[in-house]
């Protein structure tokens, strides 16, 4: 099949970008979307042109590196899938596709379809962990975890931090990402000692990073390649309120060290 691609080309951070038209010829339907771009890039390189930059690594849908908008939908038309696992059989000859990077103030474009998602790392650094120094752990079976709790925590923990939720949200909100990590850790008995402080810190960091608010419209959930549910946001909101009004004193938020 032959396709027409309109791809966002931007030399570097802060530079002006534009959509550039390319033709992808003789695309095999068993190719993945990224392999289709690989072939196009190989042709560009042989013509001496700058290939289209995009982030990718495992190509198994688990590392979370890849992702861009295809015709205005994060990760493209197939649900529950990252672009590396999206195959060309979902498109047809003559299709015209618009490829754009994730767009958000918190995710500045690095080049072409590559964006900087370090804001996510900083949200995790703000409290997305359980403080347990190496060697100080009790026996693995010392704290039983109800199977159901574990399953729910696992559902939330499946997040791959690809950023599709932010990209798809009209407000560029990181609520699904942050909610998922808060739910994962706060559902488990191990996460209880730091529960409310964690929620407060991560939410505060999310605000510092300039993400927008959540309007509960559900686009994030729809494009999430790991099908993380909107309930994680409700969970986060619940812990946020508890932290603010029930648990009392606020910690001072400042980076230490």
């Amino acid at each position: 099949m032959n396709l027409i691609l309109h791809v966002w080309r931007q030399k570097g951070p802060g530079e002006k970008g534009q959509m550039v038209r390319y033709e992808a010829k003789n695309v095999n339907e068993d190719m993945s979307f990224l392999e289709m771009l690989d072939v196009l890039n190989e042709q560009l390189v042989l013509r001496g042109e700058d290939p289209i930059a995009f982030d990718h690594d495992c190509r198994e849908g688990i590392c979370g590196s890849c992702g861009f908008m295809i015709n205005g939908v994060a990760h493209g038309p197939q649900r529950g899938t990252t672009v590396c696992q999206l195959h060309m059989r979902h498109f047809k000859d003559g299709d015209e596709l618009w490829l754009e990077p994730w767009r958000a103030k918190a995710f500045p474009v690095v080049k072409d379809l590559v964006v900087d998602r370090s804001a996510f790392d900083r949200i995790i650094a703000a409290g997305g962990y359980i403080s347990v120094p190496t060697g100080s752990a009790p026996d693995g079976n010392a704290i039983p975890v109800p199977k159901k709790k574990q399953e729910m925590a696992m559902d939330a923990a499946a997040c791959i931090a690809c950023g599709a939720c932010v990209a798809m949200c009209p407000n560029a909100s990181a609520a699904l990402f942050t909610g998922a990590k808060i739910s994962h850790l706060n559902l488990l008995p191990q996460g209880q000692p730091e529960r409310y402080e964690r929620a407060e810190r991560m939410i505060a960091q999310m605000n510092i990073e300039n993400f927008g608010h959540c309007t509960n419209i559900g686009e994030c959930e729809a494009v999430c390649p790991k099908s993380i549910r909107l309930e994680v946001i409700a969970f986060m909101n619940r812990d946020f309120l508890r932290a603010k009004w029930v648990e009392g004193e606020e910690p001072v938020l400042a980076s230490q060290g």
């Binding site: 309109h6 966002w8 959509m19 908008m69 015709n71 205005g72 939908v73 649900r79 618009w98 754009e100 767009r103 958000a104 103030k105 918190a106 798809m168 009209p170 407000n171 560029a172 909100s173 300039n210 993400f211 927008g212 608010h213 309007t215 509960n216 419209i217 559900g218 686009e219 959930e221 729809a222 494009v223």
Partner: peptide
């Protein structure tokens, strides 16, 4: 919040298509 959200995405998409959200919610 709406102003903040606008600032959270200074450059909009050339194309954006809804997947799930309702007209009412948006």
């Amino acid at each position: 919040l709406a102003i903040r959200a606008k600032a959270a995405r200074p450059e909009g998409y050339r194309k954006w298509n809804r997947v799930k959200s309702s007209y009412a919610s948006r």
